[in-house]
């Protein structure tokens, strides 16, 4: 039923092809452009060179930004792993007053527009962190911001796994005389491990690519890779290097999610949303 045939079928195939082209052509153009011989962009490229790749790989700006991005991603992922797992255990294994409020609170950082979250964190940095604690915007504040919205990624992954696991194994462990900590260490954690790895990869990928909140939390001295691209986007002299870094960013943002899917299966991919 409702399996189109003839002309309709061909029209639908053509439409799907058009959508796929719409999705892929711009990304492919960026890829081709990173080998463009000209400094200024013209289509089609007059010739090809790997010169910009060499320039980009040795340029200090992108490299420092890459290091900042990796540190920020690792820091945010570690914090989110701990906090997200704790929250997930609390919300799936216990029923308590205010449970749905806590659930809402976890989702809020990705549900609200990023610019509002960014604005809020920025004013917290300039009004509280800097005058009271002497911490100015930099790597630390980037990590705090990223961890806040990465918690939900870990939370979703671990919650999906905990629901599927059920409680029988944990109850069996308790019946055999294991305390809560032993049960967690020897039963729950080993069963959660792949969900944690998949969630951690997704959180890292999310942090690595984030720019909306980061604009407000990164100080001028510590750009992440996306911020570095954004700062150099409108400078014609930097255009060839920006193209190369853009390709690197696409690959590095796809890679963690792809790995997470291989490890965690379909439940991992869906929770990125």
């Amino acid at each position: 039923m409702l399996r189109p045939t003839g002309v309709v079928r061909w029209a639908l195939w053509a439409f799907a092809g058009f959508v796929l082209a719409f999705v892929y052509v711009p990304l492919i153009v960026v890829g081709i452009n990173s080998f463009n011989r000209d400094r200024t962009f013209g289509w089609p490229p007059a010739g090809f060179t790997t010169q910009w790749w060499q320039t980009a790989l040795t340029a200090p700006g992108p490299r420092e930004a890459l290091v900042t991005s990796v540190y920020a991603g690792l820091g945010a992922t570690v914090i989110a792993l701990v906090l997200g797992t704790l929250l997930s255990l609390a919300l799936t294994r216990f029923d308590f007053f205010g449970r749905s409020v806590v659930n809402l609170l976890v989702v809020l950082p990705i549900a609200l527009p990023g610019i509002v979250t960014g604005l809020a964190l920025q004013s917290a940095i300039s009004n509280v962190l800097t005058p009271v604690l002497g911490i100015s915007a930099g790597l630390f504040t980037i990590i705090v911001g990223h961890a806040t919205f990465c918690i939900v990624v870990i939370f979703n992954n671990v919650t999906a796994r905990l629901r599927r696991m059920g409680t029988s194994l944990e109850l069996a462990s308790a019946d055999l005389g294991a305390g809560p900590w032993t049960t967690f260490r020897r039963v729950t954690f080993p069963l959660l491990r792949s969900a944690l790895v998949a969630g951690g990869l997704l959180a890292f990928g999310l942090s690595f690519d984030e720019i909306v909140v980061t604009t407000f939390t990164a100080g001028p001295g510590t750009p992440t890779l996306p911020i570095w691209i954004y700062n150099n986007l409108f400078r014609p002299t930097q255009a060839p290097v920006v193209n190369v870094v853009a390709v690197v960013l696409v690959v590095l943002s796809i890679l963690p999610v792809w790995l997470a899917q291989r490890i965690g299966g379909r439940e991992a991919g869906a929770s990125r949303l």
Partner: peptide, 24 residues
């Protein structure tokens, strides 16, 4: 799905090359 995960910033940037004068 794959383009969904590709960098948001680069996707926006990609349209500059598409839209600019003498662009794609």
């Amino acid at each position: 799905l794959v383009p969904l995960w590709a960098s948001y910033l680069v996707k926006a940037y990609a349209w500059r090359a598409m839209l600019q004068p003498e662009g794609v």
